[in-house]
Design a protein around this nucleic acid. Structure first.
Lengths: 342, 342
DNA sequence: CTGAAAGCGCTTACAG
DNA sequence: CTGAAAGCGCTTACAG
């Protein structure tokens, strides 16, 4: 092959292919991209030469020229937590199916997050952005606008982006009604607060808790509503506090599965039986919940991710799309709930 | 701002900044990149103008010009499985710390994998690639060579790439020795096979199983060595088979935590107590293992990911690096193992 | 159907 | 310290 003298050999270029195929750069470009208006013979010839040199068009150069990157960014606070990981996997899957690359940006701390919106490291690098379960403040939205790309929110939204998410109030209702229907009247809630996170403006799951009790005229006791940090350890702490009460609840509604896991651990260590001594229900249905026989309200992180990207793709394609998409939730009754025995 | 008439406004360019700052394109470029040989005053001026227009240099164009992409690819079979997710999170963290973007490519099925190596979708799009827990065949390595970028393997290797991984045989020994030291003599192994995966050439964990028994002169019984699909369901199946034996084992060594989870579920359902009726140990120490009180051999997916990227970065920087890095494993004794009672 | 040329938005020797 | 110019590897009106 022709070797460029001025730079280290970066491999063969379209110009090389064109020369060898005996056509112009323009024609070679069209042949490679499958643009119409090139004879079949020419196309075949060019591609054959390209093939022989295992040449592929440089997406970088191509993108520069046509003004798109072929990449979608995903902004998230977590990668390894099951819910996020599942959403991310599905997002990548859909994008890959459309020939788009997925570039992940994880802002682990408030400082990371501040810095992300300050520096906007995805700037000029993506064609669109999916914001995954991350509340966006008005100021952050302003920054994001500088990106000048399509943005969509998956699993919760605050700023006014198209979004797909569950109805948290409804999910909470499903969980609470299950406990109430079983006959529980002394029900506690373990609510999660992510210490690393500015909070969501409305805590719909907590709202569902009080609403459900209100509806039956059951007074809401402060002691029965505990707020703990996110994660299994938070659930542990929450259940410990509830067990310390003079009169513990007969059932607990945990904000999410992770909390329930920690709560279950405490109960096991305390020698208490589930569901005989304590019922527990939560929201999510992570893979481990089946293993742990946890009653929970199922939502699909993957589906939310998938629909969010599909919305984004529609926006990019200039096609019509839904501004708000609500994905279903439903109760999965398992062994952690039963009528109260006390 | 100057508006380009010929194309849709893609925003302000370096040329605009240069013009407004009253310097040449070249100088503006140097000022923005912080290249030396520009007066402080000029640099300040240029950056001030850029700031005012919230302009950032186009990574795409810059990369095209200097020949790098600022992106690292991660090739994996899974995103949502805890081990992979943890590694990925750490990889992204390190790369972000170096100003590099992470682009994920997940090959879920053998067909995906075939297609990945055939089409090489990361071609010309990344500066390096980390292959995460994915065995690479000689033919696949040949294809990867076409990428012409640095490649490193995290958590297991087959092709001859620099790698970082645990010593599986040693991890297996740690698990087995724990059971043996507790006095178990009738020990089963539940081994995982990923149906979607070409297998790793040597099954070191299984090897550790037979070796440990051999060392004590304990015969290896075929019935006690079960092979099941990966995941909790596989563990369930494996434990069911073991419980069906005329003489079940007193302890089980599970290839990985996920299998152990499924096995624990069977035991719970069968009303068998852990560890009194059955001890169980595995390898990984995923987050849920603490919650489940599972004795396991800890390895760190995150550390392996981190060290792998660091190796890759050293390669890219032309610095010296280790070809093989072994990360430590150690037994975490918890409540799922005890001396045999039968 | 095909080509010459301008353009995408930068970087970097090469000369001052 | 600064600028004019070539180059990175493509794409795409504009003319045939």
């Amino acid at each position: 092959m022709t070797t460029k003298p001025e730079r280290p050999d970066r491999g063969v270029t379209l110009a090389d292919i064109a020369r060898e195929a005996g056509v112009s750069l323009a024609t070679a470009s069209r042949a490679m991209s499958g643009a119409r208006g090139v004879s079949a013979a020419t196309t075949r010839k060019v591609r054959e030469v390209a093939e022989r040199h295992s040449y592929v068009v440089s997406p970088e150069a191509s993108g520069l020229s046509r003004g798109s990157t072929g990449r979608i960014g995903v902004l998230t606070r977590h990668i390894a937590r099951p819910f996020y990981a599942e959403a991310l996997e599905e997002i990548e899957s859909v994008l890959a199916g459309h020939g788009l690359d997925t570039v992940v940006h994880c802002v682990r701390t408030p400082e990371d997050q501040r810095s992300f919106f300050e520096r906007l490291p995805v700037r000029r690098k993506v064609d669109g952005l999916v914001v995954l379960a991350l509340p966006v403040t008005p100021h952050e939205k302003e920054r994001l606008d500088l990106l000048d790309v399509a943005v969509v929110a998956a699993s919760g939204q605050t700023a006014d982006y198209p979004y797909v998410s569950i109805d948290d109030a409804e999910a909470g209702r499903q969980a609470m009604d299950h406990l109430l229907m079983l006959g529980h009247r002394r029900i506690a809630m373990i609510n999660a607060i992510d210490p690393n996170a500015s909070e969501w403006p409305i805590e719909l799951r907590a709202l569902a808790y009080t609403r459900a009790l209100d509806r039956l005229g059951i007074p809401v006791e402060d002691d029965l509503f505990v707020r703990v940090p996110w994660g299994a350890d938070g659930g542990t702490e929450g259940m410990e506090r509830l067990l310390s009460l003079r009169e513990p609840p007969t059932a607990v509604f945990a904000h999410s599965d992770d909390l329930a896991y920690g709560a279950l651990r405490v109960l096991r260590r305390a020698g208490l039986r589930v569901p005989e001594d304590m019922s527990i229900v939560s929201i999510n249905d992570l893979p481990m919940s089946e293993v742990l026989d946890l009653t929970t309200v199922r939502q699909s992180a993957g589906l939310q991710g998938r629909l969010a990207v599909e919305t984004l793709l529609a926006m990019l394609a200039g096609e019509p799309y839904e501004h708000a998409t609500i994905t279903p939730t439903r109760l999965i009754p398992r062994g952690s709930t039963a009528p109260p025995t006390r």
